[in-house]
């Protein structure tokens, strides 16, 4: 990279300072990278770089600590909201957030997620919903769509066998403890900009002591879906967003 020789006045846009030079391990086109960038930008813009602690999940984002230069603690599968609760209760002035995938948040960690949100801990959750277990090789997730093929529902998700996709974000919106619940996506530039605003609002509400928040990012997993990155974004728009409709499900922040 030639950043060293670029005069500052010539620089329009570059990698956020909080993102280090370690190339990310994610597959080509993976939404995680975009969301990592948004999180880094928001923390930088809030001036919270010295006070942010992320709790990373088990799943593809387990390595988030390698890319974002803030402090991290890695939780067991599904337990990020509990771990974050422990940190935040000891250090209320820190920006403590969790970053979780759909298997982590909506299957093995459903209890920890809903109860943390319901307690109204001042902790935002970034929820990556790509409707599949990516890290383990593409198994059915709690959010896998009806008819969607995965390695453990090879003939497509059948509600009779596999139950229904879980709209956990709608559940979160019903909880008294949450102040902001939003569903966003990152498949195009306009969506990414909206997603960033939602993350900013969630992080700000935590620092203002307004309660818990959840920002679901409907995401792609091109490897798991077995599509090219561009096709995966098209599939997301066609199928995912039909079932997982975007927008703020709850907002009592008053911003």
């Amino acid at each position: 990279m030639q950043n060293d020789v670029i005069a500052p006045e010539n620089l329009v846009y570059a990698k956020p300072k909080l993102m280090n030079d370690t190339p990310m391990h994610y597959c080509a086109g993976c939404s995680h990278g975009v969301v990592h960038k948004l999180v880094a930008e928001v923390i930088e813009e809030m001036g919270m770089a010295d006070k942010a602690i992320g709790v990373s999940p088990v799943g593809c984002a387990v390595f988030a600590y390698r890319y974002l230069d803030i402090d991290w603690q890695e939780a067991a599968h599904g337990r990020a909201p509990a771990v974050a609760t422990g940190i935040k209760r000891c250090w209320p002035d820190r920006l403590v957030f969790t970053y979780q995938g759909d298997g982590d948040l909506a299957a093995i960690g459903t209890a920890e997620t809903l109860h943390m949100l319901n307690r109204g801990e001042n902790i935002p959750i970034i929820f990556i919903n790509n409707a599949i277990y990516g890290m383990t090789g593409g198994q059915m997730a709690p959010t896998t769509l009806i008819g969607q093929k995965t390695t453990t529902c090879p003939y497509g998700r059948d509600p009779k066998l596999n139950g229904y996709p879980l709209k956990i974000t709608e559940m979160a919106a019903m909880l008294n403890g949450t102040c902001f619940v939003s569903r966003q996506s990152v498949e195009n530039v306009a969506s990414i900009r909206k997603a960033k605003r939602a993350i900013r609002k969630a992080f700000q509400s935590a620092m203002d002591g307004k309660g818990s928040s959840l920002v679901e990012i409907v995401s792609t997993c091109s490897s798991g879906w077995k599509l090219s990155p561009v096709k995966a974004n098209e599939w997301l728009e066609e199928h995912m967003l039909e079932f997982y409709q975007k927008g703020d499900l709850k907002d009592t922040t008053g911003y």
Partner: peptide
């Protein structure tokens, strides 16, 4: 045109936008 859309979209944060 320096619209930054490629930067925003890039999942690997590989793009730097410059003006000379």
């Amino acid at each position: 045109i320096g619209c930054k859309m490629c930067y925003v979209m890039c999942p690997d944060v590989a793009i730097t936008v410059l003006k000379d």
